[in-house]
Amino acid sequence: MYQAISPYVPVLILILLAVLFGVVTLLIAWLVRPNAPYSEKLSPYECGVEPLQPGKLRMSIRFFVIVLLFLLFDVEAVFMYPWAVMYKPLGWWGFIEMALFVIILFVGYIYAWLKGALEWE
């Protein structure tokens, strides 16, 4: 049935529909809702007091370390997807290759752990 069109055409239509849904819903809400702003109402929320500092804070370096670790491990995980699909045709040779890969991954993982990159203090 789907030979006539590429399987990606429905995805494209769905993207259009999803974005349209979001935009139209917000537009309708914009048309019907009341609007009576004043400056106290528009100030950032801070438990009832005047905001003490600008809203953009400095953040903990731990978040950056987590992102770095994620990049490393995710790139390594990406290698596993094509391997997983072709796993049965590859046979025992595929297993040994990936076992070596995972062992190397583990060494890096243990190194990151010993260095304290996974601690959250």
Partner: peptide, 19 residues
């Protein structure tokens, strides 16, 4: 939002999500 609570929540959420 230019506000503190949302910023902290967003940061936490991002690191939680990617982990």
């Amino acid at each position: 939002g230019n506000s503190k609570y949302p910023l902290l929540g967003g940061l936490r959420s991002a690191s939680q999500f990617i982990s």
